[in-house]
């Protein structure tokens, strides 16, 4: 059905122009990336769309050790880009293949995914595990941690230009588990774990759980259970237990909170086992 309330679509040619348009009437305007979420969920008050297609903020590229994914890059483009396939030892394509359907991935953008940050988002869970940062513009260009972006107070939310995956995680070991009712479904619960090892010792651990049904969060006590250890099965059990205890699991129509707690333990354990049993301890 048409989004009847939309009255006009602006097509700025520059980031500054886009931001100025957005500031003119923040209540009634929205940035338009792939448009999927706007078609589905545009509030009745939104009458102006600001199409970001003309800003040239698409494409996947390496910048030094960092992987930079332009905001307008579709999920399919991320999935197919050789640059993203290389990051975190091939972690991203495996995650993105589980997101929605190819039909939606061909339209939805990574910018849309991180700005909307649906509670069930697999993309957000996976990117937080890789310490993703958002390059944004709100009068000036700056960088936000994706994990903390939801705490950004300003209104409107800055214009996202790119997602940056720091090089430190380029060689991280990472794994992802998604539980859903069917294969083409949002997550009942998802979780992603990543870590780097130096001489077998675990550094920079991340344990992230999403769709709880709230949006993805790190679970610090679970991470602490692994920190500076050798990812032994005892560590893994401790992390899984801590994750299950700490996860903000609640009921919704897809599952009960209790079941989500169970899935959290299983998901975290399976991610860590996949990592532990993966490329070994040489990295």
């Amino acid at each position: 059905m048409a989004v009847h309330q939309i009255e006009k679509v602006l097509r700025p040619r520059s980031v500054e122009e886009a931001w100025r348009s957005r500031l003119e009437d923040p209540g009634s305007s929205r940035f338009l990336a792939g448009g999927v979420d706007l078609v589905l969920y545009a509030p009745p008050s939104v009458t102006t769309l600001i199409d970001l297609a003309g800003l040239g903020v698409g494409g996947v590229r390496r910048e030094g050790d960092d992987l930079v994914i332009g905001a307008m890059t579709t999920l399919t483009e991320v999935l197919e880009a050789p640059e993203s396939a290389a990051a975190a030892r091939g972690f991203l394509p495996g995650v993105f293949r589980q997101v929605a359907s190819p039909l939606q991935r061909n339209v939805a953008t990574i910018g849309g995914a991180v700005v909307r940050a649906h509670p069930w988002s697999d993309v957000v869970t996976a990117l937080i595990a890789l310490d993703a940062r958002l390059e944004v513009f709100d009068g000036r260009t700056r960088s936000l941690s994706l994990e903390l972006a939801r705490e950004e107070r300003g209104e409107p939310f800055p214009l996202v230009l790119a997602v940056r995956l720091p090089g430190a995680f380029g060689n991280a070991e990472a794994a992802f588990e998604k539980f859903s009712r069917t294969a083409f479904d949002v997550a009942v619960l998802n979780c992603a774990c990543s870590l780097r090892r130096e001489s077998g010792i675990c550094r920079d651990v991340r344990v992230v759980v999403g769709g709880t049904p709230a949006v993805a969060r790190r679970l610090p006590r679970a991470e602490a259970a692994l920190a500076a250890g050798r990812v032994t099965s005892a560590d893994i059990e401790a992390a899984a237990r801590a994750a299950a205890e700490d996860v903000d699991a609640r009921d919704d129509r897809r599952a009960t909170g209790e079941y989500r707690r169970t899935l959290t333990a299983v998901g975290v354990r399976r991610c860590l086992e996949a990592i532990g049993g993966g490329r070994g301890e040489s990295a």
Partner: peptide, 27 residues
């Protein structure tokens, strides 16, 4: 379904299959 859930409206947009119901015509 008009919600991207069923794929009955699939078309190729610049060669790639998409849900036509999720694409604004202006895009």
């Amino acid at each position: 379904c008009e919600a991207g859930d069923c794929g009955a409206c699939t078309v190729l947009l610049d060669g790639r299959a998409v849900n036509a119901c999720l694409v604004l015509a202006v895009k």
